[in-house]
């Protein structure tokens, strides 16, 4: 792992009226690393994700992103076209609800190919081939390529969303509760898939979850948030096996031991 961070945030603060969503949050992400952000509902996890990805503007602080050429960019000072281009190519965003990201009236192949076409791919055969290849990688039958997403199950939709996001080989993917709303066996398969894809493609991930077992399975490092503050952070196993902060101890102890 290099010493240069891929994404680094300093002193992020944002409040919605009187409610502090982020209070002086620092975060660093190195290439190929999975960083989990955990905490209860309303602790500012999703807000942090939206600020880090430039979808929401913070009131204070800065987010730096290092592009493949090693240049640093202030994410919130980037011109809109550059940021949108970044979101289409080098970055990806996986939503909790795949319907937010997918086009439900467009076939699975079209959904996967959209980012390629947005980048300027103009060869139907190649786009289709890439789509089929990616469906296979996320364990969807290649003969479903022409089916509409509305005929897919919840787990398949989530995998389709992942294929659609990864088709442009992003270096950084933001995931907001990627396993939320799925039943346990489907969750396990999806986690397995995400883990192998992330390892194989060397993707850095910022993962927001309230599920500590998801964090345990996927993340290298973990940040625990409460009321907009990062109360504890460190290596996943270290934080979860030996929690120091009272809130982290509460979180860890409240997980049912199977």
């Amino acid at each position: 792992m290099t010493n240069e961070t891929l994404l680094s945030a300093r002193g992020l603060s944002l409040s919605f009226g009187a409610i502090p969503a982020l209070v002086d949050v620092d975060a660093d992400l190195w290439p190929g690393e999975v960083l989990a952000v955990v905490g209860e509902s309303g602790s500012g996890k999703s807000t942090l994700l939206n600020v880090l990805s430039g979808r929401l503007r913070q009131q204070d602080g800065v987010v730096w992103y290092r592009d493949p050429e090693g240049r640093l960019h202030d994410v919130h000072a980037m011109p809109q076209p550059a940021l949108r281009a970044l979101h289409r190519s080098d970055w990806g965003f996986v939503h909790q609800n795949p319907r937010e990201n997918l086009r439900m009236s467009v076939s699975a192949g079209g959904n996967v190919g959209e980012r390629l076409m947005a980048q300027g791919s103009r060869h139907y055969g190649n786009i289709r081939e890439a789509a089929i290849d990616w469906l296979r990688q996320v364990e969807i039958d290649a003969d479903r390529v022409d089916d509409l997403p509305r005929t897919f199950s919840g787990g398949m939709l989530q995998r389709l969303q992942i294929a659609r996001t990864l088709v442009t080989h992003p270096r950084l993917v933001f995931m907001d509760e990627p396993t939320g709303g799925l039943d346990v066996s489907v969750q396990a398969r999806l986690l397995d898939l995400i883990r192998s894809l992330v390892r194989r493609l060397d993707i850095a991930v910022v993962l927001v979850t309230h599920d500590l077992s998801v964090a345990r399975l996927l993340a290298h490092r973990i940040m625990v948030m409460q009321r907009g503050r990062v109360v504890e952070s460190g290596l996943t196993d270290q934080v979860l096996d030996d929690p120091h902060h009272a809130y982290t101890q509460l979180l860890v102890s409240s997980v049912l031991q199977a």
Binding site: G110, E114, M117, A118
Partner: peptide, 9 residues
């Protein structure tokens, strides 16, 4: 890109 998605479909 969206227009090409329509053509793709």
């Amino acid at each position: 890109g969206l227009m090409h998605v329509k053509l793709y479909e």
